[in-house]
Amino acid sequence: MKHKLANTYLILVFIILYAPIIFLIAYSFSQGETMTNYHGFTWRHYQTLFSDARMLAIVANTLLIALLSSLIATLIGTLGALSITRTTKRVTRESLLTLNNVLMVSPDVIIGASFLIFFTMLKIPLGFGTVLMSHIAFEIPIVVLMVLPRLREMSRSLLDAAQDLGATTRQLLTQVIIPFISPGIFAGFFMALTYSLDDFAVTFFVTGNGFSTLSVEIYSRARQGINLEINALSGVMFLFSLLLVAGYYWIQQASQKRRHRKREVTS
């Protein structure tokens, strides 16, 4: 009985969480122009979406920004995490971590506004470059936080052992440290990717006239009134994020399976 109640509760929660998304996607197939009534099935909104060159360009921009910024942020963040753990002085290490965490928790609006002030002060024209830079900036702390725990798990003697067996500092990094922390690096990369894809607040401040990302574009279109093309776009984005999750899951499964296969050979 108790078990049943818990299950019902869980199902209810998920229905409430997913209902708006499903509602939105369902109307993307409606023949009407508004979301007041469902008027029968059509692909029309998807056709408009895929013939909307401006929208497609924005999607491409958004993906480009997300991929590029998360790649660079992963690189910088991993190096940062490495140097934080290498810091022997406790005070320095703790303050570096705190500075990192403050960036994590401070509101996006503040970060966005400060970036805007920063860029205008330096007279950097707003556009692709500024959006990329600010995305990299707020993704770095995420990557650092994902990589640090793995680095901490690595015992000092593991490095000693590699050195003992003849590894140079470079080989230490490529043969031992990077493989060991790679789950953390992957997690950091995917987190950064999703953060970049759905960021609105920071991007809103630093996009110039000619440049826009999806979240900003959807926001500005939604202000002009509901357009079912947005619903179609949401449907595509939802599918995309599902693929992303599936992809991440697949990578994890594959690496587990590889280990598993090795085991089967012997036993």
Partner: peptide, 12 residues
């Protein structure tokens, strides 16, 4: 060469 107390084998 050294044999470590915690073995220090590479888990990956």
């Amino acid at each position: 060469n050294t044999v470590f107390q915690d073995y220090a084998l590479f888990p990956h």
